[in-house]
């Protein structure tokens, strides 16, 4: 039994791999997609507990994914990952309902802690 199902959306292969290599050993079920379309399609197909999404991507960006997830599946938590943080986008993301905001390069411990907090939050909610 997995601790939860996590969808990672990032156009960078190394970031996706880092996430899976960090989170799978912790007992999460991790699905990796490289763009927003695939991510949203996967969300349609099956239940997902948490979405980790990059902010800056071609076509559908992280903010757009966040907005659609919160529209359709408000119970799904979203953690935004970004290469460079501006206060604007951080504020926007939090207002749209993002659970957390992770700055690259994140450490495995930081990622694990953030994800764990999200699941803990989900359970209490």
């Amino acid at each position: 039994m997995s601790k939860g199902r996590i969808l990672v959306v990032d156009d960078e292969d190394i970031v996706r791999t880092s996430c899976s290599r960090t989170l799978v050993p912790e007992g999460y079920e991790v699905t990796l997609v490289k763009n927003g379309f695939d991510g949203l399609a996967l969300l349609e197909q099956g239940p997902i507990d948490l979405v980790l999404t990059d902010l800056k991507m071609p076509e559908i960006d992280g903010i757009e994914i966040l907005r659609r997830v919160k529209e359709k599946w408000p119970q799904v938590e979203v953690i935004i990952i970004t290469g460079y943080q501006t206060v604007d986008t951080a504020v926007k993301a939090i207002k749209l309902g993002a659970f957390d905001y992770l700055e690259k390069p994140f450490t495995p411990d930081g990622l694990i802690a953030s994800v764990a907090k999200a699941f803990a939050h989900k359970k209490t909610a």
């Binding site: 960090t22 290469g83 390069p105």
Partner: peptide, 22 residues
């Protein structure tokens, strides 16, 4: 330039940090 560099460099750095920790 920094914004562009940050975006491009931070992803490989994420890989280095993560795999370093692993």
């Amino acid at each position: 330039m920094a914004a562009g560099v940050a975006h491009e460099i931070n992803s490989p750095l994420t890989g280095i940090v993560t795999f370093g920790h692993l």
